[in-house]
Simulated scan of single mutants.
Amino acid sequence: MSWRMPSETAPQTRTWMAFPAEGPTLGETNAEREAGYAAWTAVAHAVAEFEPVTMVVDPAEVTRARRMLSSEIEILEAPVDEFWMRDAGPTFVLDPERPGVLGAVAWTFNGWGDHWWGTWRKSAGLGRFVAEAAGAELVSSLLVNEGGGIHVDGEGTVFLTETVQLDPRRNPYADRARVEAEMLRTIGATHAVWLPRGLSRDYEDFGTSGHVDIVATMPSPGVVLLHDQRNPAHPDHAVSAELRAFFGEQTDAAGRPFDIVDLPAPATIRDADGDTDWSYVNHLVVNGGVIACGFDEPEADDRARGILEEAYPGRRVITVDARELYARGGGIHCITQQQPEVGA
């Protein structure tokens, strides 16, 4: 068996999402909850312009979901408490030796390290539920990991973060060798690039402890799109410099040094909860397009859109306001999961 996770730029069958459910993540007030529902809905409708969307909805939220979502969006009912599909859901893989077979890696999900505030036990079953619904062959994994904690180039390279996969709250007995062996078995990664850390806010109470999908991604083999915080007053100014130096010393699975493309952060450096982690790196690639995070900063949003258009030639870039997503702990990539086309 030789499973392989394709690049996000490979042809896709659909995008999977989970509809918000009431709880700590959604918000405490009616206004906060309504803003959360609206943000997830806006992303779903943007993705649906390019490819089918399937939304997993908790039974308690089905009436609301049917009212807010376009009829084009498929709704499946299943228990949901955390609705970050990238993390709680499966990672889809293909088998090069069996062109018509879709696989789905169901990582062990424990709410990013079983934090005191976590309500994740319902969504811990999303990996298996989505795998079955997609008609995929289940690839079980005992590794506590999330889809937002990895990025691949489809040619053997995987980005990992020391503070995620080696987090003692996730995998107390793991070391690099064990994690890399599991990455080879499940997603076909032959070369791991271990980032030393993620963005500063990601280490606060409600963070993921360093997910890579808000920091760096590979739009094509040998190229890194890197979050660039240019304001020295923000702690991620130093983090950006550290990671730029780090990637300058790394190679991909083919032995190529990385071409680093800076993706500047928005100008806003603080919100109601402290230092921002607003990042344009957390975008979703879809068939013929890119769904990009927007932050109501026309100059910065336009600049990011231009960089993404160059990084993904031939794709139309759509910007969706992501501030309400970030207020809850993530961005557009975090709430979506692409299903690759088999035989592609």
Rank of each mutant, 00 (worst) to 15 (best):
M68R: 14
M68H: 12
M68D: 14
M68T: 11
M68A: 13
L69M: 08
S70V: 13
S71R: 15
S71E: 15
E72G: 13
E72V: 08
E72R: 15
E72W: 13
E72T: 14
I73Q: 06
I73Y: 11
I73K: 06
E74F: 13
E74Q: 15
L76F: 11
P79V: 04
V80L: 00
D81P: 05
F83E: 10
W84H: 09
M85P: 05
R86S: 09
R86D: 07
D87M: 12
D87F: 10
A88F: 11
A88M: 12
P90I: 06
T91H: 10
F92E: 03
F92Y: 04
V93W: 00
L94W: 02
L94H: 00
L94D: 01
P96C: 06
E97W: 11
R98W: 05
P99A: 11
P99V: 09
V101K: 08
A104M: 12
A104T: 12
V105C: 02
A106M: 03
A106D: 13
W107N: 07
W107G: 03
F109E: 01
F109A: 02
F109V: 05
N110M: 14
N110K: 13
G111E: 07
G111Q: 05
W112L: 03
G113V: 01
D114N: 12
D114S: 12
W116I: 14
W116C: 13
W116M: 14
W117D: 10
W117N: 08
W117P: 07
T119L: 11
W120E: 03
R121A: 09
R121Q: 15
R121P: 07
K122M: 10
S123W: 04
A124E: 10
A124M: 02
G125M: 08
L126W: 00
L126Y: 01
L126V: 02
R128P: 02
R128Y: 09
V130Q: 01
V130H: 03
A131C: 03
A133C: 10
A134V: 00
A134D: 00
A134T: 01
A136S: 03
E137C: 10
E137P: 05
L138C: 12
S141C: 09
S141Q: 08
S141M: 02
L142K: 15
L143P: 01
V144H: 10
V144R: 06
V144A: 07
V144Q: 07
N145A: 14
N145K: 09
N145I: 04
G147V: 03
G147F: 02
I150Q: 09
V152H: 00
D153T: 01
G156Q: 05
T157Q: 11
V158M: 02
V158N: 03
V158L: 02
V158D: 01
V158Q: 02
L160N: 01
T161C: 12
